[in-house]
Simulated scan of single mutants.
Amino acid sequence: MLVAFSVSPLGGESDSVGEAVAEAVRVVRESGLPNETTAMFTTVEGEDWDEVMAVVKRAVQAVQARAPRVSLVLKADIRPGHTGQLRAKVDRVERYLSGPTEY
């Protein structure tokens, strides 16, 4: 299961969200689950809902500790029996890009 999510503080005194977002990313990295952070989302991969959503919940709580309000955007790819998709999905696209231009 892949879950891409973005968690951000709302309200408070600063326009900068970087410090609070860093705390959420720290939670994800400390989870030990495969993950990747980009400019817009953090993607985490796990075996099932409980495992992945527990990490998302802790990440939200980390941001919530710093802000009066929190925004969460989440997208999930639920495909039982498939692991290693965090990298494999990108690798498949890269193969198409490097191959012949006709499909």
Rank of each mutant, 00 (worst) to 15 (best):
M1S: 11
L2G: 07
A4F: 03
F5C: 09
S6Y: 03
V7W: 02
V7M: 11
V7N: 02
S8C: 13
S8M: 11
S8K: 05
S8L: 12
G11V: 06
E13Q: 04
S14L: 08
D15R: 10
V17S: 14
V17Q: 12
V17W: 09
E19K: 10
A20M: 06
V21F: 02
E23R: 15
E23A: 14
A24D: 09
V25E: 12
R26N: 06
V28N: 07
V28H: 05
E30I: 05
E30N: 11
E30L: 08
E30T: 07
L33P: 01
L33Q: 07
L33E: 09
N35Y: 09
N35M: 02
T37D: 03
T38H: 05
T38M: 03
T38D: 10
A39F: 03
M40Y: 12
F41D: 04
F41Y: 13
V44N: 07
V44D: 05
E45N: 09
D48V: 10
D50I: 02
A54C: 01
V55Q: 05
V55R: 03
V56A: 11
R58A: 14
A59H: 01
Q61L: 08
A62K: 03
A62H: 03
A62G: 05
V63H: 09
A65H: 01
A65M: 06
A65N: 01
A67H: 04
P68L: 01
R69V: 02
R69A: 04
R69W: 01
V70G: 01
S71L: 15
L72G: 04
V73Q: 10
L74G: 00
K75L: 03
K75Q: 10
A76V: 05
A76M: 07
A76H: 00
A76I: 02
D77A: 13
I78S: 00
R79S: 06
P80R: 14
G84I: 12
G84W: 10
G84R: 10
A88P: 00
K89N: 08
K89L: 13
V90Q: 13
D91F: 05
D91A: 14
R92E: 14
V93R: 09
V93T: 12
E94N: 11
E94C: 04
R95L: 13
Y96I: 12
L97I: 12
L97N: 09
S98A: 15
G99D: 07
P100D: 11
E102K: 11
